[in-house]
Design a protein around this nucleic acid. Structure first.
Length: 259
DNA sequence: ATGCCGGGTACGACCCGA
């Protein structure tokens, strides 16, 4: 089974590229972030025509997440528990039945947190505290559980072309990385780092010729419960998509599982 | 480089991203 994450930076602007990639790769499950669309306006029909079931958790203008799946959804959950005031659409989870048993796939768009001297940074840290609580409960289920998406976190210096340039940024601040470690230390495996110790990136800024210079960062991750990590066969970063016509600034990252 | 692209809203600029 192939499970992918991709921050598409606007479904309306990215639909042609998404359809092209789905036709070429045909992954079983695709988790999208930054759909920037309300649920009613999401372009369902062309995606469904490719054989995908579709569940969205959108909002107007910003954020928004969606899961595309060739398997039917047994369950869908929307939103991160722990704060009734938080209306930002940043989490959607699906549960699926496979021949090998159940798989739980949780798609997140973790807050960016910049600028760090505004309320955005504490919001990011609080959101991560809520995520840690959520994941703790999920791990008690002892299921294959894949937490994936745009984490807006550079885990280590090797994950940036120029780590010094990110010093003080919310994606690389010590407070952010401490939360990242707390999350990992619950027992999650960083899928990419479990198969490779090479520098590799998932995001290249639109500005300053970042793609041309390969000045990227790795911020899109698949984090695996022990039961999911046991079944991991490989990880692919679809770098080439960054060079396609009208790209997102992020590329798809795919995990392959025996499921 | 507290905004160089690029997407959103909405039709003139401003908000937002990482």
């Amino acid at each position: 089974m192939r499970i992918a994450t991709w921050n598409i930076n606007g479904i309306k602007a990215r639909l042609p590229l998404l359809l092209l990639w789905l036709k070429q790769e045909s992954p079983d499950i695709v988790c999208l972030q930054e759909i920037k669309s309300v649920d009613e306006a999401f372009p369902r029909s062309e995606i469904e025509a490719l054989g995908y079931n579709l569940e969205t958790h959108g909002q107007k203008s910003w954020n928004g997440v969606a899961i595309l799946s060739k398997l039917k959804f047994d369950e869908v959950h929307r939103g991160l528990p722990g704060d009734d005031e938080d209306l930002q659409a940043r989490l959607i989870e699906g549960v699926f039945s496979t021949e090998g048993g159940v798989v739980r796939v949780c798609n997140i768009y973790l807050p960016n947190g910049n600028p760090v001297d505004t309320e955005k940074f504490p919001y990011k840290l609080r959101w991560m505290d809520r995520l840690i609580e959520f994941v703790e409960a999920r791990l008690l289920l002892e299921e294959p559980f894949v937490l994936l998406g745009d984490f807006n976190l550079i885990p280590a210096g090797i994950d940036a072309h120029d780590p010094a340039a990110w010093w003080g940024d919310a994606l690389f601040r010590p407070e952010s990385l401490e939360k990242w470690r707390r999350l990992k230390n619950l027992g999650l495996t960083d899928a990419l780092r479990s198969v490779s110790s090479e520098p590799c990136y998932t995001f290249w800024d639109f500005q300053t010729g970042a793609w041309r210079r390969d000045a990227g960062i790795r911020i899109d991750h698949l984090m695996l419960s022990p039961q999911a990590a046991d079944r991991l066969d490989g990880v692919t970063i679809h770098r080439d998509v960054r060079g396609w016509d009208k790209p997102s600034d992020h590329v798809p990252v795919e995990g392959r599982f025996t499921l």
